[in-house]
Simulated assay, not measured.
Amino acid sequence: MCGAPKQGGALAGVDLSTQTVIQGSVWHDGSPVAGAYVRLLDATDEFTAEVVTSPEGEFRFFAAPGEWKLRSLAPVGRAERVLSAEVGLNETTLAIA
């Protein structure tokens, strides 16, 4: 079982001047996708972490600055996005076609 924290919610208590936060949401046909698996892969496509989206389709990772790939897997399909994360809040959306 994954030990990831509950997804979504505020970032109260998180020092965004020292933390790199990657967060966003998964969408399909104009609606958030709850229960999708979102994987965090490093620059070499190596698996780093995985979380399940909240009822609002939200996810969050705490990572190091650098190049990352996000991959969502859900019964309605999958999506990928590459992003360059910096210290602070890095937000993105994964749209399943």
Rank of each mutant, 00 (worst) to 15 (best):
M1S: 05
G3K: 08
G3H: 11
A4Y: 08
A4N: 05
P5E: 15
K6C: 05
Q7Y: 05
G9A: 08
G9D: 04
A10Q: 12
A10T: 10
V14S: 01
L16F: 00
L16I: 12
S17D: 12
S17Y: 12
S17P: 04
T18V: 10
T18F: 05
Q19V: 13
Q19S: 13
Q19A: 15
T20E: 13
V21Y: 13
V21K: 02
I22A: 02
Q23R: 07
G24M: 12
G24A: 07
G24I: 02
S25C: 12
S25M: 11
S25Y: 06
V26P: 00
V26C: 02
W27D: 01
W27Y: 07
W27P: 00
H28P: 07
H28F: 15
S31Q: 11
S31Y: 05
P32K: 04
P32T: 03
P32V: 13
V33W: 01
V33D: 00
V33S: 00
A34Q: 06
G35I: 15
Y37P: 00
Y37H: 03
V38Y: 03
R39Y: 10
L40H: 01
D42M: 13
A43C: 05
A43I: 13
A43G: 08
A43L: 07
A43T: 08
T44Y: 10
T44L: 14
D45Y: 03
D45C: 01
E46C: 08
F47L: 10
F47D: 08
F47M: 05
F47A: 12
T48Q: 15
T48C: 15
A49P: 05
A49W: 14
E50T: 10
T53S: 04
P55M: 15
G57A: 09
F59A: 02
R60N: 07
R60D: 07
R60C: 14
F61Q: 02
F62H: 03
F62K: 09
F62C: 03
F62N: 08
A64I: 10
A64N: 09
P65C: 07
P65W: 10
P65Q: 15
G66M: 04
G66A: 06
E67Q: 14
E67S: 13
E67T: 14
W68P: 00
K69D: 01
L70C: 04
R71Y: 10
R71P: 00
S72G: 07
S72D: 06
S72P: 06
L73Y: 09
V76A: 11
V76I: 14
V76M: 10
G77C: 11
G77E: 13
G77L: 06
G77V: 14
R78T: 15
A79P: 04
E80Q: 11
R81T: 13
V82L: 12
L83P: 05
L83T: 09
L83A: 08
S84D: 14
S84N: 11
A85V: 05
A85G: 02
E86Q: 12
V87C: 03
G88Q: 03
L89G: 02
L89S: 09
L89N: 03
L89T: 06
E91K: 11
E91C: 11
T92Y: 04
T92W: 03
T92F: 05
T93Q: 09
I96G: 06
